[in-house]
Design a protein around this nucleic acid. Sequence first.
DNA 1: CTGAAAGCGCTAACAC
DNA 2: GTGTTAGCGCTTTCAG
Lengths: 348, 348
Amino acid sequence: MPEVPCPVTRPPREPRRPLTLRDVSEASGVSEMTVSRVLRGRGEVSEATRERVMAAARQLGYVPNRIAGGLASARVNLVAVIVPSLANMVFPEVLTAATEVLEGAGLQPVVGVTGYDPDREERVLYDMLAWRPAGVILAGLEHGAATREMLRAAGVPVVEIMDVDGEAVDSVVGISHRRAGRQMAAAILDAGYRRIAFLGTMMPFDHRARKRMEGFEAVLAAAGVALAAREFYSGGSALAKGREMTQAVMARRADLDFLYYSNDMIGAGGLLWCLGQGFDIPDRLGLAGFNGLELIDGLPRRLATMDACRREIGREAARIVVAGRAAAGSRIELTPVLAPGDTIRGLR
Amino acid sequence: MPEVPCPVTRPPREPRRPLTLRDVSEASGVSEMTVSRVLRGRGEVSEATRERVMAAARQLGYVPNRIAGGLASARVNLVAVIVPSLANMVFPEVLTAATEVLEGAGLQPVVGVTGYDPDREERVLYDMLAWRPAGVILAGLEHGAATREMLRAAGVPVVEIMDVDGEAVDSVVGISHRRAGRQMAAAILDAGYRRIAFLGTMMPFDHRARKRMEGFEAVLAAAGVALAAREFYSGGSALAKGREMTQAVMARRADLDFLYYSNDMIGAGGLLWCLGQGFDIPDRLGLAGFNGLELIDGLPRRLATMDACRREIGREAARIVVAGRAAAGSRIELTPVLAPGDTIRGLR
DNA sequence: CTGAAAGCGCTAACAC
DNA sequence: GTGTTAGCGCTTTCAG
């Protein structure tokens, strides 16, 4: 990556007109083309020239204009990354991992947030494609028709992340949430629990949570077990909601012996409430969440969970974008591992 | 904001060459100039023409090229937002609030992450300024000389956020962390605690945490009280670290009667550990954190804390950028409120 | 209300 | 190694 000629001294005068390559060219007595080469670190340039150019650029405080550069070269170092939310730690983590890989390749993520709203997703994508990014990473496989069409026509790598249960436009990196739900159900049944409740978010467009629940119920049904209760929430502090939902569901069905939460944060809230009630965990009552958040390490007991492979997803998605056309159509299904923690009996 | 002419039907053929205004112009029989007007929603255009153009654009799946547009108009709808980290929920929250305001004004945030590293901050800023953003929002007042110089020379609104203790390049929106530390110290002393420890992060560039500690110690010193212990951590799950640090510090100084944490997450970990130990909180031992995270609502006891005004900071910073030159040099100091929770005695 | 011409600041593709 | 020429796809400006 080219060196950054940041200004260390104040330029002689505050020029009203923005600086251009020409200014650096004149100040250094080198042609614009060569200045451009130096600043991009491309092409063979003699060391002497290079230094004169860098000195002039630094001196003036010149910052190259990528808008012009992008137009001229039809190459842009931006990568669109579109996630449903930043409030759920899962996405900042995916983003952080993706950013590390992208930066290493000289690419710059541009983050868009949809709020789990397909219309906003469409708008956000449209706005980002207007910058002709070098790639698109976006969460989920469910998109509006127009969104899919834009992705298809974008002509750059598109990576749909988090989920693999569905049809991808181009590449996918994620886990099977249906399978994750099934796996958790099997473990719970194995451990002998039978009066099981599901506690989750009330978001029509959180397809991954829905799929986990579907997989979960399917396995229960196959074993002749029906969900004994369901509880949904929306908004507010997830930890507090976990607490409230748990209290509510236990008030309705005191005989429940297992609570499956759609994420670790509400699970943690539920766990704290249950411990406060003095419930015998995991014998009388088992609990499990989803995501494998770091947070779990600090709870009085480790909540059973399943790793959503967030960092790996971010990293692999970024790699696919970096690889360009070579990696088109990749499909990477990661395998979440059940971490039984201390809240499922007999599974230590 | 202009309507989004997203494609609802597949274009007739997959064109290899990217679409341009000219394609829409030809397909609609309207000049490029008028197509441009329609797509941007600028200038007077007859309804009939408008509809023909929109239909053609939608049909083709045309997405305007903002690179070319930005170059021609020297106007860009991007706003650089530079934060130290996404792992600390504080920043995603600021970002979310800022995004709401920016989107409402047709601006698009571009997020950069520095990892609390001044050199990375400089690089990130350089990369962002290369896109000639309409404004810059960045955390903190402490920057390298080159970074300050770039900010000064950017020629667009610059808003430094989170902190007001220091000299700003242009506008500032934040709170005084020194004052926050002082205020907390005063409250703790008022409540009669005297053997006080500080537990925090070991980050040389987390200036805000440092300032809180400085303010905190200053008030203690003025009252003739010295910090009885300090404990620092880095990396790992903050909740777990809070637990470990608390255990460690209490092992060293069992007579401590107050623990002041540099953030709520480690404070929550400490609180959970203390409750597990059966400590008499808040009488025998008081606790306080910082930030006012939502998370607190779900803990067995409400941790005392002080709101960092995160959403308000994001919102106001974005407003200043939206206002443009009119708001240059603004200074907004917000006042964090002490939320005594259940962990400081006599302050319910 | 609509159109034609002239760049925006840079880089690809060639010369030298 | 270095310089020259011609655009990239839009929008500004000015005519009609």
